[in-house]
C-alpha cells in the first residue's frame, strides 16, 4: 500500500499572499475527506500532490520518493485528479475518446484503453453514451464523464475535487459506491467536498483546512465532535450531528440509521 508524505509544505500564487502555510501530513489507505472554507487551499493542495503546481518550500514524498523529481506526465500514471469543473477537463467531441485519452497517454494499448473506458463508463452509469458529445449532456453527466476518465486510468491514487456538485441523491449514492469500491481495490482515495452528510457517511478520515493550515485531522466522528473548531473553519457538523447537539446527546452520531437506533433504544428503557 502506497502512502504520500507531505513535509513542511508552503505555497503561494503571488508573493505575500500565502495559500498553504507549512502542511505536514501523511496520507494513507484510509478514505479521506478534505473539508474547509472557500479559499482555504484545498484545491491548491491536491494540485500540488498531482504535480500541477510545485511547492514554494517543502517536499512531497510518494512511497518515500521525492515527487519534485518527477514530471507531471510521470505522476499521471499514479495519481488521478477529477477536476472540480468538468469543462476544464473535457475537450474531446466524443465521450469514448475523452475517457480513452488518459489511459492511452499513460501507455495503455488501444485495446486495453477501450476496455478500461467501457468499464469506467458503465461504473458511472453512462454505458451507451460512447458516441455522444459530452457538451450535449448536462453538467451532472459531464461530472460523471470526468470521473470515468480518471477511473479508466486505474491509478493508485484517485482524488476527487467536489464530485457531488450538481448530483442528485441517486448519483451521490453511486459516487459513494465508487469510493468504497476504489478503497476495496486498494486505492488511496482523497476527496475535497462541502457536503458534510456525505463526508459523515463515506469517509474514515477527515482533514479540516483553515487558512492554509491543517486545523483538524482524525477519524471522521472525532472531527465532527469538535463543534467550535468547525465553526472557526466556516463549517458545520452533518445534519444528524446537529440534531444530536440540539437534543443534548453526549455521543456524536453521523448517520440517520445510527441516530434512529439510539433513540429507539433510549425510548425502550
Amino acid at each position: 500500500m502506497s502512502n504520500i508524505e507531505i513535509k513542511d509544505m508552503y505555497f503561494s500564487y503571488t508573493e505575500n499572499e500565502p495559500v498553504l502555510n507549512g502542511i505536514n501530513l501523511t496520507l494513507d489507505s484510509r478514505t479521506t475527506a478534505i473539508i474547509g472554507q472557500n479559499g482555504a487551499g484545498k484545491t491548491t493542495f491536491v494540485k500540488l500532490l498531482k504535480g500541477l503546481l510545485k511547492p514554494t518550500h517543502g517536499q512531497i514524498f510518494w512511497d518515500g520518493k521525492d515527487i519534485s523529481q518527477m514530471t507531471v506526465a510521470q505522476l499521471a500514471k499514479y495519481i488521478g485528479l477529477v477536476f472540480q469543473n468538468p469543462n476544464d477537463q473535457i475537450f474531446k467531441g466524443k465521450v469514448i475518446d475523452e475517457v480513452m485519452f488518459g489511459p492511452i497517454n499513460i501507455g495503455m494499448s488501444q485495446e486495453d484503453a477501450l476496455d478500461h473506458a467501457r468499464k469506467a463508463l458503465s461504473i458511472v452509469g453512462l454505458a451507451g453514451t460512447e458516441d455522444e458529445n459530452p457538451y450535449d449532456m448536462g453538467l451532472s453527466d459531464r461530472k460523471m464523464i470526468a470521473i470515468a476518465s480518471i477511473l479508466a486510468m486505474d491509478t493508485d491514487v484517485v482524488i476527487f475535487d467536489e464530485p457531488t456538485i450538481a448530483q442528485d441523491y441517486k448519483a451521490k449514492e453511486k459516487i459513494k459506491q465508487i469510493i468504497r469500491q476504489l478503497k476495496s481495490d486498494g486505492k488511496m482515495v482523497l476527496t475535497i467536498i462541502h457536503d458534510m452528510d456525505f463526508v459523515a457517511e463515506c469517509f474514515e478520515r477527515t482533514i479540516v483546512f483553515a487558512k492554509g493550515n491543517v486545523l483538524l485531522d482524525g477519524p471522521t466522528a472525532e472531527v465532527f465532535a469538535q463543534k467550535e473548531k468547525l465553526t472557526q473553519a466556516y463549517l458545520e457538523p452533518p445534519h444528524v450531528t446537529q440534531l444530536c447537539n440540539r437534543l443534548g446527546y453526549q455521543q456524536t452520531f453521523l448517520t440517520v440509521e445510527d441516530f434512529v437506533a439510539y433513540v429507539k433504544r433510549t425510548l425502550k428503557k
Binding site: 472554507q37 472557500n38 467536489e162 456538485i165 462541502h194 466556516y234 463549517l235
Partner: peptide
C-alpha cells in the same frame, strides 16, 4: 440554479 454547490457550509447558509 444550484447557487451554493461550491460554497463551504457557512458560506452556503
Amino acid at each position: 440554479d444550484e447557487p451554493t454547490s461550491q460554497l463551504d457550509p457557512q458560506g452556503s447558509e
